[in-house]
Simulated assay, not measured.
Amino acid sequence: MASPSLFLCFILPIFFSISSTVSTNSEGNALHALRIRLSDPTNVLQSWDPTLVNPCTWFHVTCDSNSHVIRLDLGNSNISGTLGPELGELRHLQYLFK
Rank of each mutant, 00 (worst) to 15 (best):
N29S: 13
P50W: 04
L31D: 00
S3D: 13
G28I: 03
G75H: 10
V61A: 07
V61I: 14
L93E: 09
F59W: 13
L87R: 00
E27M: 09
Q94S: 08
L6Q: 14
L34M: 12
V53N: 15
S67Y: 11
P55R: 05
D40S: 05
V44W: 11
V44I: 12
S65K: 04
T21V: 12
P13T: 01
M1A: 15
N76I: 06
S80V: 00
S80W: 00
L8Q: 09
I36T: 12
S19Q: 14
M1H: 11
D49H: 04
L83N: 05
P4A: 10
V44G: 10
P85R: 09
H68G: 02
S80C: 02
K98Q: 15
I79Y: 07
Q46I: 12
D40W: 05
T24E: 06
D49A: 06
F10I: 04
D73Q: 14
K98H: 12
T62K: 04
R91M: 10
F15C: 08
Q46Y: 10
F97N: 14
P85Q: 12
L31K: 01
L12I: 05
S77F: 06
N43K: 08
Q46D: 12
L90E: 02
N76D: 14
F10C: 07
E86H: 09
D40T: 01
F59A: 15
S77D: 09
V44R: 13
R35P: 01
L52Q: 15
V69L: 05
T57S: 15
P85T: 14
L45R: 01
E27L: 02
P4F: 11
G75S: 13
L74P: 04
N29Q: 15
E89R: 07
L38V: 00
S67H: 15
F15Q: 07
F15R: 04
T57R: 09
S3T: 13
S23Q: 14
D40L: 08
D64F: 09
I14T: 13
N66C: 07
T42D: 12
L8D: 11
L52H: 11
C9P: 00
Q94M: 06
G28D: 05
A33C: 08
D49T: 07
S17I: 06
L12G: 00
E89Y: 10
E86F: 11
A33Q: 07
S47F: 09
P55T: 01
P55W: 04
P41S: 06
S17T: 12
P41T: 03
P55Y: 04
S47D: 10
W48S: 04
T24L: 09
L12M: 09
G84A: 01
I11S: 07
Q94F: 03
T24P: 02
W48N: 07
D64R: 00
S20K: 12
P41Y: 10
A2P: 06
V61R: 05
C63D: 03
S26Y: 09
S19C: 08
V53R: 10
S26C: 04
W58N: 07
Y95W: 13
N25K: 14
V53F: 13
K98E: 14
T42M: 04
T51S: 13
T57C: 11
T62N: 07
S26V: 04
P13W: 10
N54W: 00
V44M: 07
S39I: 12
L83P: 01
S23H: 12
T42C: 05
F15Y: 14
L96R: 01
D73A: 13
H60L: 14
G75M: 05
A30M: 03
H32M: 08
N54Q: 00
S20T: 07
S20V: 03
W48C: 06
S47Q: 04
